[in-house]
Structures are given as structure tokens and as C-alpha cells.
Simulated scan of single mutants.
Amino acid sequence: MSQDHLILIQPGFVRPGRAPEARFACPDCNVLEGLLATAPAGAAAQLKVSRVPFERPRQAVIELLGPDHQGLPVLVLGDQHPVPADAQRHEGRAFVNDVQQISRLLAERHGLLAL
């Protein structure tokens, strides 16, 4: 059985064309980081969480979802729960990349707080 896999952008990245000392965070990823930080102990035990660099190509994401689906955050859905009908698919993997939907699924499937 595969587990759900949440992929986020590592906070503190430098953006091309911006001052090199300026650091940034993905707003949607940070919302989910906050939900993870406030999760009850053990709530996300069956959830894999990865953080990848901001720069593209994002090879770890490409390996799972192909080069056309590198936008983050993304929740790659495992087979332990029903897959929503509106989930996107790539080579048999179902995923969602809307932060509201990810939040709802993390609450339903893993006991995290909902937005």
C-alpha cells in the first residue's frame, strides 16, 4: 500500500532577479507547513512529507508526475483512502495541487486541522 505524499517547496529560497540576500517562502506551502506544525501527535503518521528546492526543473516531482506538473504544493494520493473524482492523474498516480483541497484531504485523511 502506498501512502499520501505531500511535496512542498523548501522555505528560504532565493528568487532569480531579486537581491541575493532576500529570502522567500511559497505562501501556499507555508500554509500547509503551519497545518503540519499544529497537527496532533501522530496525526500525520501515514503521510510522507518532502521539501524540494524552488528552482526548476524539480526532478523529484518530475519523476512522480512528469514535467508538466511541477507546481507546488502537491499531494500525491496513496491507495489507503478513496481518491476524489476531480483528482488529476499522471501515469496511474492521482494528485491534487489546490491548497484548499489539499488542506481538506489532510484533515479528512490524517487528522490535521482544516483551513
Rank of each mutant, 00 (worst) to 15 (best):
L36R: 10
A85I: 01
H69W: 07
L47F: 07
A60F: 00
Q88N: 05
L36S: 07
T38S: 14
D79P: 02
G17N: 06
H81R: 14
L36E: 10
G42M: 02
Q88T: 01
A45G: 06
E55T: 08
D79Q: 15
V83K: 12
R56A: 09
V83L: 10
L75N: 11
A19E: 11
F24S: 09
G17S: 12
P40E: 11
C26V: 02
L32H: 13
A44E: 12
R58Q: 05
N30R: 07
G42D: 06
Q88H: 10
P20E: 12
E33F: 12
D68N: 13
P57M: 10
V76M: 07
G66P: 06
E33A: 14
P53N: 03
D86E: 14
E55Q: 13
R89Y: 12
Q80D: 10
G17D: 09
L77I: 11
A85W: 02
H90F: 15
V49L: 08
D86T: 11
P82S: 09
E55M: 08
N30Q: 11
G78P: 05
P84D: 06
P73L: 03
P67M: 07
N30V: 01
E91D: 15
G71D: 14
A44N: 04
G71C: 06
A19H: 14
D86S: 08
Q46M: 01
D28W: 13
A85C: 01
P40N: 09
E21P: 00
G17C: 10
E55L: 08
P57F: 09
E55G: 03
P57N: 11
G66H: 06
G66C: 07
I62H: 02
Q70K: 03
R23L: 14
Q80E: 14
A60P: 02
P84C: 04
V76D: 05
G66I: 09
C29D: 09
S50W: 00
A44M: 07
A39K: 02
D79C: 07
A25S: 13
F54M: 09
H69M: 00
P40K: 15
A39D: 06
A37S: 15
A19L: 04
F24T: 02
G34L: 05
V31H: 15
D68E: 14
P27A: 12
G42A: 08
Q59T: 15
A87Y: 04
P16S: 13
L64Q: 12
S50C: 02
A25Y: 01
L36P: 08
V76S: 04
V76E: 10
P16C: 01
G34P: 03
R18D: 07
V49R: 06
D79T: 15
A87H: 09
A22Q: 13
L47S: 07
V74G: 07
G71K: 06
P20R: 12
V83G: 00
E91W: 00
E21V: 01
E91Q: 15
C26T: 04
E33I: 06
V76Q: 07
A22R: 07
G71A: 14
V74F: 09
L35K: 13
A37V: 02
A87V: 08
A44W: 05
Q88Y: 04
L65K: 03
P73G: 03
R56W: 01
L75S: 10
C26M: 06
P27C: 12
K48C: 08
R51L: 03
I62T: 05
E91R: 12
G42P: 11
A19R: 11
H69Y: 11
L36F: 04
